[in-house]
Amino acid sequence: MNAEAINALCAGNPRAVARAISAVERGGAEARAVIAAIFRHTGRAHIIGVTGAPGTGKSTLVNEIAKYYRRRGQRVGIVAVDPTSPFSGGAILGDRLRMQDLAGDSGVFIRSMATRGSLGGLAAATADAVRVLDAAGFAVVLIETVGAGQNEVDIAKNAQTTLVVEAPGLGDDIQAIKAGILEIADVLVVNKADRDEASATVAALEMNLNLKPQTEDAWRPPVLRTVALTGQGIAEVAEEIGKHRAFLETHGLRQARERARIRAELERVVQHELLARLVRGVNGDKIETLVAQVAARELDIYAAAEQLIHVA
């Protein structure tokens, strides 16, 4: 992308934004150039993650939350992630289907992303796509993860405020005390709260929160009821997001989280880059030989790795 395109991007031009997201998705030198050019314009948006099991109503909730911020004049960017087929490499990206209320509003930009083999609930380029929207001046960026099970917790590293969406009837109270996705929630949302078992779900989540020893100045995730289809409860969700944001600021946690995120990302990039260089530097036959030796149980995997690092 040239300087003109970068300027257009930072001015919020939708075509420039769309192209830049494609570039960071492709990766490689062009992706690096885009990030290098926009990086100092990032760090302004409030990044909100929305995660939860398939069918809990994440997309509909995102649609309603976006409408809430639009009514207050804030520009909203949305990155919606859906899974890539492990067999064909293709994907159905269907989140826009539930966000049609936002069509025709130039203050909203929606981008669907496929995971392209990445685990953890996001695509590898999701963080960079969010940076593009941030640089383009979207004050709020919502990230919707793939339908998450129990362990897709990468969103907590990418968002400043994480919403975990539950729906009634998905599990008993033992599910609520398991480790994983519920632990990353800053705000818990019980959607489809007009259904019968909603109170039981809210009670199970509250009980789980009560089991955790409360410290004076820790954030306690609120448990909220919504009916995203009618917009019921959305104002309360937005209010709690605002409170959480203020809490992060007053407790110096915004910077602390930012640093933790940067450190994790730096480590990931270095790991990836070192591995790529190492593999480039080693004769392909050597790797094949080691693989064969491990397969024949002549070497264990750690010894083989040691040898590989040694020859490089």
């Binding site: 939708p14 075509r15 934004v17 769309a18 890539t84 293709g90 994907a91 159905i92 990206l93 269907g94 826009r96 289907l97 049609q100 069509a103 025709g104 930009f109 929606i110 981008r111 669907s112 496929a114």
Partner: peptide, 21 residues
């Protein structure tokens, strides 16, 4: 990668989705 937007799309909605995606 198929972005599925569903029924009753106006010409404006279709062009906007094509642009953003």
């Amino acid at each position: 990668e198929v972005i599925y937007t569903g029924i009753r799309q106006t010409p404006e909605m279709i062009a906007e989705a094509a642009l953003q995606e």
